[in-house]
Structures are given as structure tokens and as C-alpha cells.
């Protein structure tokens, strides 16, 4: 049993870490893109902005369990199979991207517009404004928002069982719900609480350290 719990914990960590990394890698540029193409910003392009926003909102409105099933063909294309931990990471990454995009966009939105104006008045290019002003100033909010996203991803990963992805959530459903083994459920809950606490504390510390 201990082995099973350890394996499931590892699967959860793997899924959440992978999808967070992918989410950040894609979500940050996409969030920046959505922000700067919005009305009154650096590269205003309302047509592209509204279309991208519409697609993101559409994906976000799909309940996660349905997204997992809907993405099966895409998962098969990317991972080669639609079953297993790696396969479960695909829909989780998509969800992560959608969450990170909004976090990044909101974080950029609270950077005072005067800072952009100041940088432009110094002769900065739009790329320089983004890299030297917007992203560094938004970083503390991006980190604190990311903490929340990663915690939500742990929640989402519980549904990985639907495509045989394993993980703690899957373990709790199979042993706790289907065989009514309450001990397993409690153990899983304990591990999840510790995990979430660690992420929260770490996130808060980093945010505090980088916010001057």
C-alpha cells in the first residue's frame, strides 16, 4: 500500500510540475500577447485580441473532466497514446495555459501605465518596454497568481484517473470510493494538504522577496 501511495504521489508531482512548466512557457507569452494587443496598449490590434480572447474563454468554460475526454485525439497525436500519466498531462497543460494566461494578463494590467509611458519617452522599443518594464514589474503578481494556479492544477489532476493517468486523486477514488477504504482517503488528504501548504508558503516567500 505504501508503495502505491508513493507511486501516486510521484505521478501527481510529475503531472502538476510538467503542466505548470508548459503552462508558464506558453501562458506567459500568450498573456503578454493578449495584454499588448488590447485597447490602448503597445501593439493594439483589437481584431486579433478579441478572437484570441474568445477562444481562450471558450476553452476555459469547458468543465475539466469534459476537456480531458474532448482532448483525447490531440493527446494521442502528441504523446502517441491516450492512456497514462503523460497522456493525462496534455489536458492538464491546456488547463494550465488557460489559467496562466489570465494570471499574466491581470498582473500586467495592474502595472501603472505611466511606467510604459516613461520607458517609451526614453526611446524604448516595444520589446524593451515588455522585457525591462512590464514583465519585471508584474513579476510579484505573476508569482502569487501562479501559486494559486498550481494549487488548482493539483485539484484538476484528481481527474487524471479518467484516462488512466494515476496520481493521488485517482488512488483516493479507486480505493476510498470504490472499495471504501477510508484510511487511504485520509492519507491522500494528508499528503495533498502538505503539498498545497508547501506550495503556498514557498509562493508567498518568493513573492515577498521580489516585491520591493
Amino acid at each position: 500500500m505504501t508503495e502505491l501511495i508513493l507511486e501516486s504521489t510521484w505521478q501527481t508531482i510529475l503531472m502538476v510540475t510538467l503542466s505548470s512548466v508548459i503552462g508558464l512557457l506558453v501562458g506567459i507569452p500568450l498573456g503578454v500577447f493578449l495584454f499588448i494587443t488590447d485597447k490602448g496598449h503597445l501593439c493594439q490590434n483589437l481584431w486579433i485580441n478579441r478572437s484570441a480572447s474568445l477562444i481562450i474563454n471558450a476553452i476555459r468554460s469547458i468543465p475539466y473532466i469534459i476537456l480531458v475526454i474532448a482532448l483525447i485525439p490531440m493527446t494521442r497525436l502528441i504523446v502517441g497514446t491516450s492512456i497514462g500519466t503523460l497522456a493525462a498531462t496534455v489536458p492538464l497543460s491546456i488547463a494550465a495555459i488557460m489559467l496562466f494566461v489570465r494570471i499574466v494578463e491581470d498582473a500586467l494590467r495592474i502595472v501603472p501605465t505611466g511606467l510604459t509611458e516613461a520607458a517609451l519617452s526614453m526611446g524604448a522599443t516595444r520589446m524593451q518596454v515588455t522585457k525591462k518594464v512590464l514583465l519585471p514589474e508584474a513579476l510579484p503578481s505573476i508569482v502569487s497568481g501562479s501559486t494559486l494556479v498550481i494549487i488548482s492544477l493539483i485539484g484538476f489532476s484528481a481527474m487524471a484517473g479518467a484516462v488512466g493517468g494515476g496520481g493521488l486523486g485517482d488512488l483516493a477514488i479507486r480505493y476510498g470510493y470504490q472499495r471504501y477504504n477510508l484510511t487511504v482517503v485520509l492519507e491522500v488528504i494528508a499528503i495533498l494538504v502538505v503539498m498545497v501548504q508547501c506550495i503556498q508558503v514557498l509562493g508567498d516567500r518568493i513573492t515577498k522577496k521580489i516585491r520591493k
Binding site: G114, E117, A118, S121, G123, P136, E137, P140
Partner: peptide
């Protein structure tokens, strides 16, 4: 050229607009 010229047109603001993390 406009960007080059802006180097010589300094601007200061009511709310200072300093970068908080620098």
C-alpha cells in the same frame, strides 16, 4: 530616428513612474 531623438527629450511625471523593483 524618433527613438533616438527621444533620448534627448527627457520626461518627468506627476507620479514619478519609477520602477519599483529596480
Amino acid at each position: 530616428i524618433l527613438r533616438q531623438k527621444r533620448h534627448h527629450l527627457g520626461m518627468i511625471f506627476q507620479h514619478f513612474n519609477l520602477l519599483s523593483r529596480r
